[in-house]
């Protein structure tokens, strides 16, 4: 039996008594698996994702050494899934990052400076929130063309206003807290207040928002690719895999089921993390409404 005061026991106690929920832990573990699969996909891929063996086309799951079967050209679906995962996850992360940076910039600017800057920025955000995002994204990508940057930039550019709105509202109330006013009185500059007090104060909200936004972007990316307007044709992103599977619904249902499961897994993970963070904030006495 372990000593009650041993470091591992204390560590365990800290874990169980902390506010971190089961959801958050599960979500983080599932997400780490995803990241590990992406980073070390070379070790996990059993075949070349781009080269197929026509003799083995439409192998069902588990046959001919193909874990998840093969597609119409005999390419290994498991290896293709991993290859596309990198594309899908990084596109969604990048779009989230762009939206966050733009939203944070506009939101903080509007909160920090009053007067006409705030009025104009609020009007802009109001307008941008009313944009039918997905429609605009579809049209812009259709006009500009497929590819990583067109897609991520468009998704980021149409989805930032929600960040701006929330960050603006939250930092407005943070800016009136006593400790912020105090540090202002002691001569702290705008930048140091924003980075030292406001951004850390926004952290609970932002962690929830980022997780949910990531899930949204992932769905949007796969939806656009599925429509043939997102990822370039050759890349086996999840949306593209789904798109290709449509022609073989009768012969090879697994071609659809596997990428669908991938999307569901990733979105579910992101939702778990977002919900976990918001439960965490709730237990610490903050309610986050997004």
């Amino acid at each position: 039996m372990s000593d009650k005061n041993s470091s591992s026991a204390r560590y365990f106690k800290r874990w169980t008594e902390s506010d971190i929920s089961v959801e958050l832990i599960t979500g983080v573990i599932l997400f780490s698996i995803l990241i590990a699969l992406i980073l070390f996909r070379g070790y996990f891929q059993t075949h070349d994702p781009y080269v197929g063996d026509l003799m083995e086309r439409f192998s069902p799951m588990g046959q001919n050494g193909h874990l998840l079967g093969t597609d119409n050209l005999g390419r290994d679906l498991w290896s293709r899934l991993l290859e596309g995962m990198m594309w899908s996850i990084s596109a969604a992360s990048m779009a989230t990052l762009i939206a966050f940076v733009m939203g944070a910039f506009v939101g903080l600017l509007a909160a920090q400076y009053g007067g006409w800057i705030r009025t104009i920025l609020n009007q802009v955000v109001d307008m941008a929130l009313a944009f039918p995002n997905l429609i605009i994204a579809i049209i812009v990508v259709a006009v500009i063309g497929r590819g990583f940057w067109p897609l991520t930039l468009t998704l980021g550019l149409v989805s930032w206003p929600i960040f701006a709105r929330v960050i603006y509202a939250e930092s407005l109330s943070l800016l009136e807290r006593d400790y912020v006013i105090a540090s202002h009185t002691f001569g702290a500059g705008t930048w140091s207040i924003l980075s030292g007090h406001i951004l850390p104060g926004l952290r609970p909200t932002l962690s929830v928002m980022l997780a949910f936004h990531f899930a949204d972007m992932l769905v949007a990316e796969s939806a656009l690719s599925f429509l043939g307007l997102g990822a370039p044709l050759g890349v086996p992103t999840w949306g593209n895999l789904l798109q290709q599977s449509r022609d073989f619904l009768f012969v090879a249902p697994w071609l659809m089921a596997v990428p669908a499961a991938g999307i569901i897994y990733a979105v579910f993970t992101a939702n778990l993390i977002g919900d976990g963070f918001s439960a965490l904030a709730r237990r610490r006495g903050r309610r986050i409404d997004i």
Partner: peptide, 12 residues
Amino acid sequence: MQGLPGFVTALL
């Protein structure tokens, strides 16, 4: 269910 994108459900 909340994690299921509408078009994936539709495909299924």
